[in-house]
């Protein structure tokens, strides 16, 4: 009977971790997996391979949940999404097998460091995004017509129909291949990279970019998950707990984000995220043959670095906003 209680408690705490990951993931726009993998590995001692497996399959559920709303409202551009999926799914296959070889070679500490680095770098475009909803005017190029990258959607806040035309399709495919690779390698949706591809390369409006990215994440994650399944990276019990938790968490995260009038509170979540990023880097370094750092110092360094980093980012963004207002 004690065994049963223990199992139920384990399940519920992991589900809560998933809930928290879904909440922070959707509040910051990075997705549940990016928060879930560090939580499971750093605080639950779950082997990173099983953490990535649980994370990737949970990502499908969150993507499907939110994409359901956005395709109905016709904001997500399914056509552009499918075209770009050619690169992400291919990348996901290569990423998944790269993880397999890294696992085989006993180099999983590299995944910790990579994960932390990707997490910290993905915060840059997410924090920076804030400025403008609509893209600069860039004239359509050859790929716009050939790949039919035109579209329109109704923006409820601007109260008008927004028409757009994407450009530089091939550059976007290149970014997407990398996004897919990272998704398969680290077990995350890599939404930040997908957003970058559509924002920087294709110059699509932010709403279209984020919703289409959400739609695409599920397709990429399904590719990686089915390979993970055969490699034995998915632990059904763990994946069940995280899938349920993350779905609930991101549902409430999205609701909460709409209600928040004071967006400043998002900075708290960015501090948490950067802490997790740095902690992953230090854990990886500590597991490597390079240096050894005690767990206590890992945590301490991670806290200090993330506070400094976010304070600088906060100050910097605040200043550029003021300049933008004056100008």
């Amino acid at each position: 009977m004690v065994g049963l209680v223990g199992v139920i408690i384990t399940f519920l705490t992991i589900m809560l971790a998933g809930l928290f990951a879904g909440l922070v993931g959707s509040m910051t726009g990075l997705g549940g997996g990016t928060v879930l993998v560090p939580l499971l590995t750093l605080f639950f001692g779950v082997p990173i391979i099983l953490a990535t497996g649980a994370s990737l399959i949970s990502t499908i559920a969150t993507s499907a949940g939110s994409a359901s709303a956005f395709t109905r409202q016709k904001i997500a551009n399914v056509k552009i999404g499918i075209g770009l999926e050619m690169a992400t799914t291919t990348g996901a296959i290569i990423g998944s097998f790269t993880l397999y070889f890294i696992d085989r070679a006993d180099l999983l500490w590299v995944i910790f460091i990579l994960f932390g680095t990707v997490l910290l770098l993905s915060m840059v475009p997410t924090i920076h995004r804030s400025m403008s909803e609509l893209p600069k005017d860039i004239p359509p190029d050859r790929t716009t017509k050939f790949f039919q990258l035109n579209g329109k959607y109704f923006d409820p806040r601007l109260k008008k129909e927004v028409e757009y035309s994407g450009v530089r399709w091939f550059q976007a495919e290149a970014v997407m291949f990398f996004a897919g690779f990272i998704s398969g390698l680290l077990g995350i949706g890599s939404g930040a990279l997908k957003v970058m591809g559509m924002d920087w390369a294709m110059n699509l409006p932010m709403k279209v970019t984020t919703t289409t990215s959400n739609f695409m994440i599920g397709i990429t994650a399904a590719t990686g998950s089915s390979i993970y399944w055969k490699l034995g990276y998915i632990q059904p019990f763990l994946a069940s707990a995280t899938a349920i938790g993350v779905v609930i968490g991101s549902f409430f995260g999205a609701k909460l984000l709409m209600k928040l009038t004071n967006k400043e509170i998002r900075w708290v979540f960015f501090v948490i995220l950067s802490f997790l990023g740095w902690d992953m880097v230090f854990r990886g370094l500590s597991n490597s043959p390079i240096v050894y750092i005690t767990i206590m110092s890992q945590t301490l360094y991670a806290i200090l670095l993330s506070i400094v980093m976010i304070a600088i980012a906060y100050y910097w963004i605040g200043r550029s906003r003021k300049i933008a207002k004056v100008g």
Binding site: T10, L50, Y233, I234, P236
Partner: peptide, 10 residues
Amino acid sequence: LNSTTVTSSM
């Protein structure tokens, strides 16, 4: 939750 658990490949 350790590496000897029941995983998908089983």
